[in-house]
Amino acid sequence: MTPRQKRIWMVVGIVGGVGLAATLALQAFQDNLMYFQSPTQVLEQPIAGERSFRLGGLVEPGSVTREPGNLEVRFRITDNVEAIEVSYAGLLPDLFREGQGVIVRGKLGADGLFVAEEVLAKHDENYMPPEVAESLRMPPLIKQVEAGGA
């Protein structure tokens, strides 16, 4: 083997070895890297009330209610199988709306109410002008945009 071939194999070996190690490490941590749990997962294996965790899903259309006079918002997070009632007092992200994907961090009470300390809104990779969205008939989103557009 010429010195150059040796060096080629050295480079291949480094990348291969580190790649393998990284793959194994990521496999091992797969569960911890799960950023949030769905309502179904939470109801199957309820997490004790003292521990804070992340719950993710869609804001159930028609479930958002606001308490008059304070900042508290109540809504249900659903994965289209199960749903969990969430209470949150604070400012909501701009993308928060019915039907939107959200991730909430907080604690699940014994009464089944999830008290959120933080609400994050997800969005997907799709972008389009409002007129196009309207022509695709997505009434709840459009209404929200117009109402919250100012």
Partner: peptide, 22 residues
């Protein structure tokens, strides 16, 4: 793709994810 998380997927690599005007 691998992890269920908050950052969305690639817009430029998904056909139809963004109209040509944008």
């Amino acid at each position: 793709v691998w992890w269920n998380s908050i950052h969305q997927g690639s817009t430029l690599l998904t056909p139809g994810a963004m109209p040509i005007a944008m």
